[in-house]
Design a protein around this nucleic acid. Structure first.
Length: 134
DNA sequence: GCCAACGTTGGC
DNA sequence: GCCAACGTTGGC
């Protein structure tokens, strides 16, 4: 079991959209590092859903429902998507500020590589963030 | 709206 | 293969 974090701008696709759709394919990734992370996802992996720009908080969890396959929206190039399904919306979202203020989370990729849109999360960080959300 | 960070492109 | 220019992302 691995843990991940994906970013979305809520006005483009929010966690509530995912809840409404139940399931979606995570398209639009056009960055090699992010794509490679997508391809490393396994069915059942847990994925934090982060709202960038607006909100700037981890809003909930989704789960990998289908492993990487070619991005149907890519006209050219070698890109991938995965299917994710909504799992749990946090009662109290964990904000970027909280993450920054927590010394134990100083080296999560969200802070170190702010532009990366799909990133792995270590289990200890995952567990800690879960605790912060409850 | 600005700007820092960083990935990509293209000239040499 | 280096590096300057440029584009994009995302926090503030």
């Amino acid at each position: 079991m691995n843990y991940w974090l994906v970013k979305s701008e809520p006005f483009k696709y929010s966690y509530d959209d995912l809840v409404r759709d139940k399931k979606t394919f995570w398209d639009g990734v056009r960055n090699y590092q992010a794509r490679n992370n997508l391809r490393a996802m396994k069915k059942g992996d847990q994925v934090f859903f982060y709202h960038s720009n607006e909100g700037k908080e981890i809003i909930g969890i989704c789960e990998v429902a289908k492993e990487a396959y070619p991005d149907p929206t890519a006209k050219e190039g070698d890109w991938s998507v995965v299917d994710v399904k909504a799992k749990k919306k946090f009662k109290t979202p964990v904000t970027l500020k909280q993450i920054k203020d927590e010394p134990k989370l100083a080296d999560v990729a969200l802070i170190k590589q702010s532009r990366l849109s799909v990133m792995p999360i270590e289990k200890k960080h995952y567990d800690l963030i879960l605790r912060m959300a409850s």
